[in-house]
Amino acid sequence: MTEEHEAAFDQFLAARSTSLLRTAILVCGASQHDAEDLVQHALEKVYRHWPRIGHDNPDAYARRIVVNAAISAARRRKIIQEITFARPPETEAAAPDLDLRDALMAELRRLPARMRAVLVLRYWEDLSESATAAALGCSLGTVKSQAARGLARIRENMKEGALV
């Protein structure tokens, strides 16, 4: 790595690491500590190949590695059943939709890892269907069907009338 590469990688980290960490937490349902480990591992791969990918959309490459690692981690460790999502006590304690949010996150965690990843990328990262397919290395049709099924499952399991 040249000094130029090192500097560009640092800029990339400054711009993207928080977002990647958040994605990892949502997809694998891990604590921030575990997600940091996962993201570091993924970013090491990005760093290793930086001279090759630095000029060619490193964002997408990094997201793909992080999401796939998060899916594997969720499957491998069945984090979903073990981790409780602790909400920081000071945030939005009086918000009226708090129960709804908790319930939604609980439903999200019950979905299979890849289905959850589709919903995170589509509705939290706000990626298009094709960008989601690229990030997950699957077809457009899979993204569409997984998103539809995921939403339908959540809708079914939520208390009636809360969401459509």
Binding site: R101, D102, L104, L108, I154, V164
Partner: peptide, 8 residues
């Protein structure tokens, strides 16, 4: 549901 999910 997707809006609620995005917010959550």
């Amino acid at each position: 549901v997707e809006e609620g999910l995005a917010e959550a």
